[in-house]
Design a protein around this nucleic acid. Structure first.
Lengths: 112, 112
DNA sequence: TCGATATTTCGATATTTATCGAATAATAGG
DNA sequence: CCTATTATTCGATAAATATCGAAATATCGA
């Protein structure tokens, strides 16, 4: 994953409505959620929601598919994980890293 | 971790120089890196670097300590991990989640 | 105390981003 | 084919962010 893509992904997530939408999609899993449903759940006008979803899609964080009149969005877990890997890459310069509050996400994620 | 703090953290990271600085700090570990060294490594004017470091600090992603004339910045791993936990929280609605390209960062992080 | 070093704060400007109504496109059903 | 539904694109405006030189602050050594 390149810095450019990472920045686009982080920018996409760094906004109230988009972060909320993305989390709903992460929790929804494969079947995804329609644009209109997201707009309603988040209480955002359809045109605004569309703008935000386009940003998430542009960042590669979500995919979209048409299903009748609706457009269904789903989270792309591979990109999300790539993002997290980029942040923690080579953390602590390769040293131990499993000590108190160190950089091993899989062990410390539950806290904080 | 609350949405507000997560958004501040994501906003802080969603910028070329700040992302680069944060990664250097993540890799540097506990001993950290001085503001001036970061400015030089990233080829950014000191006043700009200071502005960016303040954003990272405000987001809680880095801590700072004075050491003689220098101010040393270090990554805060707990906040970084809290951020990642927030994104993956309750992913896939609790279903399996370990399948092909699912949302288990610790297993899929190497790819993508 | 003076001068040099390291960093931050201030201020002005340029750029990017968010918002949302109105107009446009795509689909479905009668 | 006409109407209703679902979504996106367009356009104008408001708000937030990035940039960086100059001035201010803190520390050190002589």
């Amino acid at each position: 994953m390149h810095a450019d893509q990472v920045i686009r992904a982080l920018s996409a997530l760094a906004q109230e409505h988009r972060l909320a939408a993305f989390r709903l999609l992460v929790q929804a899993g494969e079947h995804g959620i329609a644009a209109g449903v997201l707009a309603e759940k988040l209480d955002v006008p359809p045109s605004s929601m569309s703008f935000h979803l386009a940003q998430l899609a542009n960042a590669g964080l979500v995919t979209q598919r048409r299903e009748s009149r609706s457009i269904i969005y789903s989270a792309d877990y591979a990109v999300m994980n790539g993002l997290m890997g980029y942040l923690t890459e080579n953390c602590c310069g390769g040293v131990s890293c499993s000590e108190d509050a160190a950089c091993l996400p899989s062990q410390t994620r539950k806290s904080a």
